[in-house]
Structures are given as structure tokens and as C-alpha cells.
Nucleic acid binder design. Sequence first.
DNA 1: CTCACCTCTGACGTCAACGTCAGGTCCCAG
DNA 2: CTGGGACCTGACGTTGACGTCAGAGGTGAG
Lengths: 122, 122
Amino acid sequence: MRIGELATKAGVSVRALRYYEEQRLLWAERSASGQRHYPDPAVERVQLIQMLYSAGLSSSTIASLLPCVDAKESTPESRAILAAERERIDAQITTLIRTRDRLDDVIASTTSPSNGCVVTHA
Amino acid sequence: MRIGELATKAGVSVRALRYYEEQRLLWAERSASGQRHYPDPAVERVQLIQMLYSAGLSSSTIASLLPCVDAKESTPESRAILAAERERIDAQITTLIRTRDRLDDVIASTTSPSNGCVVTHA
DNA sequence: CTCACCTCTGACGTCAACGTCAGGTCCCAG
DNA sequence: CTGGGACCTGACGTTGACGTCAGAGGTGAG
């Protein structure tokens, strides 16, 4: 498929796909005229990339982890990065849960202006 | 306390505190010479601000929520924002858990180069 | 063949939360 | 009273993941 179709299917922009290629996260066959052509599995790959980006990983970190996904092979360095990122995400989950609970406290303790209070839920 | 002490106690930079003030998230008394002086509870306030920033809230969103924390009073708009951000964080936790699990899969399926495989855990 | 739409390669723009530097003022221990 | 640190206000720099625009060429249904 061409870049526009991949962008639609994966839910990202065409620009983003070119950026991923620039960051060596994604490659494409080129037609004689230079147009990119992707295989079907590229959709899942892009979604994985997006997933990792949204978890706060940088391009270079993702680039160093994708070989583990592609070849199911790891070096000591890539294993260290994998473990470290996993822990980072775990810690992030923990603080997010705390933040959510804090917001819940605020929601619970908050009342409308000039409201009598103690309205347990609505 | 002065700005340097607050920065140390709250674990942020002096520049960040001035930025928070610029964003109307924080205020300070001023001495005759113009130096900022903060009360003790400012430490917790800054930590709350940091917590919200790290959960992905923007300055303006935080600014619109802090009155709920300060006055325990909410308008329909602020209640809507509170609820929306809570849901956003909740969704973010969900996808982070999925990402973490995905990384765990990669870690589990990954082997050292030229390793025999099937080592269930170590 | 044609025309609307897609794609190409640069290359500059954006945005938020600060970092950093300059030039000047303030505070206080010695 | 003095020196070195802390503080002040601008104001420009940074970073990453794209957005956007320009100018040129490719693609395919009718």
C-alpha cells in the first residue's frame, strides 16, 4: 500500500510516517518513480511505534528496541533499555494512579458556589 | 521562605517557579525590594502543580483547576474539566498498562543472539 | 489524454515548559 | 563595609514530534 493508505489505516499523518522513516523506525520499498510501498504488517508496526511514543519513549529509544521486536534478539544493552523503560512506565502508572486519586479527592471535596455541602454524590 | 528554598524543598528549579507565577499558578508576597516570599504550604502546592504537569495537563488547564483546590468551589466548566481530565488520565493508565504488557511480551520472547530458546524465565 | 488527487523532497514553523545568559540589585556573615 | 552568594527582570535558546508550505512529478479512472 502507499503512504496515504497506511497513514489512514494506522491513524497517523503522512508526515509522521516520513518522520518515522527519517528516524529509522520504518522502511519502505520504493517504486521506480520513488514512491513508498508498504506491506500490510506495516500497519501494526506503526501502531506499535505510536504506542511507544505515547508511553514517553524517544525516537532513538524506540529505534534501539525495535530490533528486539523484529528479530526477537537482544543484546545486553537492548535488554537493559527494555528493562529500564518497563520500569519507567511502571513508575509512571503508579504516579498517574496517585494523580487520578488526587483529582478524585478534589472532585469529591468540591461543591458548587453557595451550596450547602455534604451532598455525598449528587 | 524565598524562592531558592522553595525550589529546593519542592524539587523544582527557580526558573520553573517564576514560570508558574507567570502562568498564574502561584503567587508570592513581595518584600520591599521586590523579592518573592512564600508561605510553607507553597511547597505542597508546587508539588501538586508538578504532579498535574507530569500527568500531561497544560498550564491553562491547571490554572482552571487550582481554584477548585483552593476554594473547594467549582463552576460547571471547572467540573467538566475535572471530569474530562480524570477520564483522560484513566485512559492513559489503561494504555500504559497495555504498553507495559507489550514490553513484557517482548522481553519474554527475546533471546540472546544464538541462544537455544525456551528458557521460561531464567 | 487529461485532470484531480497522491506523492516526492526540502525546509521553515510550532508549541510548551522550561534552560541559560546578561546586567543589575539585595542580603548578610565576617 | 565588603564580598560572595541569592535574587530581580527581560529576553533569547532548546528540544522533539511533528505541521505546513512550495514546487515538481507520479497515478489512474473516464
